[in-house]
Nucleic acid binder design. Structure first.
Length: 589
RNA sequence: CGGGAUGUAGCACAGCUUGGCUAGUGCGCCUGGUUUGGGACCAGGAGGUCGCAGGUUCAAAUCCUGCCAUCCCGACCA
């Protein structure tokens, strides 16, 4: 089919829109693929919509090919099922709630576990019906506190979500593996490199969970990738290796020392190194020699708060995201001034292990970073203003209630599998596969009869792909300074023909003829037939719009050749006019 | 929700400090003409509730108050 730029509903922008920061957002706006219509909501223009449809098509093909069946729910949903699952309240302010004219509550679906579960309950009742895999491609709504990054995090977005229904764990595992396999194929076809990382199950409940992340500096998730082996994990799910215990036999007894005005790790280290009586002969004291005790408050589901202390080496901080992932579903809150005031025994800046522990008078549970191993010696607070204790040995001089691997993860940290350096990277979450288990089936009463005639609760999996987000992620992965560079599998058009001649010469008829031949072969051709537009503008627009192949019908026509540029490879080839059509068709196949 | 910035034409921005003629510039758009291999040129034009509401004033894009929105950082995020 021939699409003429003279009539196509698109307007390219010469300047970058000020609101767009990341490349995909900037380029999709500039190239006229999308327009902002609402905070976190976008209008799809013809070229953008073609990309979106092609992404959808690939997702649909791969889902169908594993035997999943497509259904379609409303986006406007009643309150009751979400009330039953608890998510009407659990989802919090991120849920779009609204009322009809009679004041009845509705919501705009953020995800559809409840609806799928009830649909299956409605129609199926026997183990013979299972396994069953259903999916939909649906507009989802989440009242994001802060929509950002264009299509990457909107309040309305397109998502493919599927759900598997099985009788037992083995079946669930097979369903999970099938979806995981389909996802690998989907992202490969979309031209997206993805890294599969272990994820935390989080508030959804359930067990096995993996994320498909597309590495990108614009991504919001961080993950680690080992430079030496194939270990990969979401930062929240990283488990560092535990060093071997240290022999403390030669470590002198612990000693309380006077360290005035040292409320921070840095002031403490500086003081230790400046005092002759405290200086260490081997090497200067470093932040990593100190043990920092961080206090937080945990908010329990019933609203009560419980204090928690975490000991980490002084050169590290507690990573709140990692801590929250570990403590989920409890919420982590800062330890406020009021909390200190209520516990005068805690001396801010000088908190030591002596005061901490569930068995101590304060009753504060105390967890240690895995690096604080048996026998290791530390400088830490002495629970008195202006005093620290040195040579305090773990398991000789103090103990804790357990281990918490929640310190921040850094570049060059050791891989837990092989010990090589870990690299921290950012990624865009493109897909998530999740063994939900029986949570939803239980609360919504999805049972089937097994072969003994007994009621059994169905076990479920849930699997998501961000469809609209994929368009942005692909743009993030495939662009350069001057424009987009769509992979052939999702490009809105196969080839972009630029007429770069003078009015009345042979270039326009040549281009028309070529476009007709290509269209006859089934290609989608974007023909720049605009009148009175200078060649420079045509070239710039072709590069910005990003079709994988650009054909220039210009001065070469006089000598019987066309110029074919590969937008992805950046190469230019001259081809005789007579062979151009076949050449292009071959390359586009 | 906290911190910062911004809001003037489709896009990018100036004007605001120190209130004052008809609110400007570049790009884009329309008409005519000249151009045509890297975002052309000339001439003429259309397009604005200056984010919204209120206030101060003879007079408000400009000063004051409140609100709203957008962007960035953080918090949040199946």
């Amino acid at each position: 089919m021939i699409h003429r730029l003279s009539t196509l509903f698109v307007r390219t922008l010469r300047d970058d829109p000020a609101e767009a920061e990341i490349p995909s957002h900037r380029l999709l706006l500039r190239a006229g693929y999308i327009r902002r219509a609402a905070p976190g909501g976008f209008t799809w223009l013809p070229l953008g919509l073609r990309v979106l449809h092609r992404v959808e098509h690939i997702v649909r093909e791969e889902m169908n090919s594993i035997g999943a069946q497509e259904v379609h729910f409303p986006a406007l949903l009643p309150r009751e099922p979400y009330e039953a699952s608890g998510r009407w309240t659990d989802y919090g302010p991120n849920l779009f709630r609204l009322q009809d004219r009679r004041g009845v509550d509705y919501l705009l679906g953020p995800t559809h576990e409840e609806m799928f579960t009830l649909l299956v309950k409605d129609l199926y009742g026997s183990y013979k019906d299972l396994p069953l895999w259903l999916y939909q491609i649906q507009t989802k709504y989440r009242d994001e506190a802060r929509p950002r990054a264009g299509l990457l995090r909107g309040r309305e977005f397109l998502m493919k979500d599927s759900y598997s229904f099985d009788l037992d764990d083995e079946g669930l595992q097979r369903s999970y593996d099938a979806h995981r396999g389909a996802y690998v194929k989907i992202f490969a076809r979309l031209g997206l490199e993805t890294v599969i990382v272990k994820a935390m199950s989080g508030a959804m409940g359930g067990s096995a969970s993996e994320e498909f992340l597309a590495p990108s500096v614009s991504g919001e998730d961080s993950f680690v990738r080992c430079s030496g082996c194939d270990y990969r994990a979401n930062t929240e799910a990283v488990r560092i290796g535990t060093p071997a215990p240290v022999d403390a036999a030669s470590t002198p007894p612990a000693l309380v020392v006077d360290t005035p005005n040292t409320p921070t790790i840095q002031t403490l280290v500086d003081l230790l190194n400046s005092r002759d009586d405290l200086r260490r002969p081997s090497s200067p004291w470093a932040a990593g020699d100190t043990l920092k005790n961080v206090l937080v408050m945990l908010r329990n589901p019933d609203g009560t708060r419980t204090p928690l202390a975490i000991g980490v080496p002084g050169d590290r901080d507690v990573d709140m995201k990692r801590l929250e992932a570990l403590m989920s579903p409890l919420e982590v809150e800062p330890f406020g001034e009021g909390d200190f005031a209520a516990r005068p025994n805690l001396v801010k800046g000088y908190i030591g292990p002596a005061a901490l522990g569930a068995d101590k008078p304060l009753g504060i549970r105390y967890l240690l970073d895995p690096r604080v191993v048996r026998g290791s010696a530390w400088v830490t607070g002495a629970d008195t203003p202006g005093h620290h204790v040195v040579q305090l040995v773990c398991n000789r001089d103090f103990t804790a209630d357990g281990v918490a691997d929640v310190a921040d993860v850094r570049d060059d940290d050791a891989c837990p599998e092989c010990g090589a350096h870990l690299r921290i990277e950012r990624g865009i979450e493109m897909g998530h596969v999740f063994q939900l288990g029986r949570k939803y089936a239980e609360v919504l009463g999805l049972n089937v009869l097994d072969d003994k005639g007994k009621q059994r609760v169905v076990t479920m999996g849930s699997y998501g792909v961000g469809v609209s987000r994929a368009v942005a992620a692909i743009a993030e992965a495939h662009h350069d300074d001057i424009g987009l560079r769509w992979p052939r599998s999702v490009a809105p058009m196969d080839v972009h023909i630029v007429i770069a001649g003078k009015r009345g010469d042979e270039t326009a008829p040549t281009a028309e003829q070529l476009a007709t031949e290509l269209a006859a072969a089934g290609l989608h051709v974007l023909l720049d037939d605009r009148d009175g537009v200078s060649p420079g503008v045509r070239f710039k627009d072709a590069e910005l719009l990003g079709m994988p192949m650009i054909v220039i019908v210009g001065r070469g026509v006089a000598t019987g050749v066309l110029e074919i540029r590969d937008r992805i490879a950046g190469t230019t080839t001259e081809v005789p006019i007579a062979q151009a059509a076949r050449h292009i068709i071959t390359c586009s196949a």
